[in-house]
Every structure is written in C-alpha cells, then in structure tokens.
C-alpha cells in the first residue's frame, strides 16, 4: 500500500518537475511547480511528517507560487517563447544525468546499512519540543533571517528616484 502510494506520488512529483524544467510557457512552469510541491507534501505524509506536509502546502503552495506568479505577471517578456533553453543545454543534461547516476549508485550501494529500519513517525509534540529546546537559538536566527529578507526585499523592490539610469550601476 505504501509502495503504491509512493510510486503514484513520486511519479507525479517527477513528471511535474520535468514539466517545470522543460515547458516553454513560464506560467505553466509555475503551475507544474505547484503540482510538484503538492506531490512532495504527499511524500511527507508518507514519511509520517504531517506538520511538514502542512507547512509545505502552506508556504510553497500558498505563498511562494503566488509570489512567483506575481513576478511573472510583472516581468512578462516575449523572447522566451522562442529560446527558453540555453544553447548548451545538452551539456547541462549530461551533467545532471551523471550526478543522478552517482547519487543513485551511492543510495543503492549504501542501502544495506539503513534498510533494516522501518519508517516511523514523530509526533508534532516531539517536534515542537525539539524545535524550542535543542534548536531554540537557530530558530531565533531564522526569525532574524526572515526579518532581514523582508526588509531587504522592500528596500530592493521599492522604486527609487535613481530608477531608469542605465549609466549608473551602483
């Protein structure tokens, strides 16, 4: 049962990811990304990480896709319909396939060390305890990172008066 669900969700995720990196229409790419993220959320459920699945759907499905769609709306250009890939894309494909071969070979070669374990869940209670006891300082740093990124995005995205000057590159 778990294996069937894994193949369904994994296949959905991989097909959607392939769509993200090969589609010519950028908006379709964003929608494929939404499907891929949802598939990953399903895989998290399969790994008994319900909280992470929820967070995944909320942040990726909710926030990030919307932000990307807004960015696409505001930066729509026409020249990608004819040349969406770099002309050296076969080299990129070869590099990716080689890395996949390496990683998959390592995973299969090492599988004997780990596959004696059965997968088991962590309750949200334990997760929260771990997050706020052992990982309290990184948690606070993460909140500062978010604040800095927020302020930075506002400062960078704001239209300043120096706008439009092709010559100044400061």
């Amino acid at each position: 049962m778990g294996l069937i669900l894994f193949y369904i969700l994994g296949g959905l995720t991989l097909v959607a990811a392939l769509g993200v990196v090969t589609t010519r229409n950028i908006v379709y790419g964003a929608l494929f990304l939404l499907v891929a993220m949802s598939g990953v959320a399903g895989l998290f459920v399969l790994l008994f990480a319900e909280f992470l699945a929820l967070v995944q759907l909320l942040i990726y499905g909710g926030a990030i896709i919307i932000v990307i769609l807004f960015a696409l709306m505001l930066t729509r250009t026409t020249d990608f319909s004819v040349a969406t890939e770099h002309r050296r894309w076969p080299m990129a494909a070869v590099i990716s396939l080689a890395l996949f071969g390496l990683l998959a070979g390592a995973a299969i070669g090492d599988s004997g060390d780990y596959n004696t374990y059965q997968r088991s869940g962590i309750s949200i209670e334990e997760l929260g305890k771990g997050l706020f006891e052992n990982w309290a300082v990184p948690f606070e740093i993460a909140s500062i990172v978010l604040l800095v990124a927020l302020i930075g995005a506002i400062v960078i995205g704001r239209s300043g008066e120096e706008e439009g000057g092709e010559g100044d590159q400061g």
């Binding site: 994994g10 990196v21 891929a36 770099h86 080299m91 590099i95 990683l103 998959a104």
Partner: peptide, 22 residues
C-alpha cells in the same frame, strides 16, 4: 529508504538541469 533517496536524487538533478539550462 533507498526509494526516497533515489527519488530525491532525481528531483535534485532535474532542478540542477533547470538551473544550468534555463
């Protein structure tokens, strides 16, 4: 575990291809 590892490797390599080729 190997199932998930291979799936993650495939997803990572698709992403790598996208970063390099798009």
């Amino acid at each position: 575990l190997a199932h998930f590892q291979i799936l993650a490797a495939a997803l990572f390599c698709l992403g790598l291809y996208g970063v390099l080729a798009r």
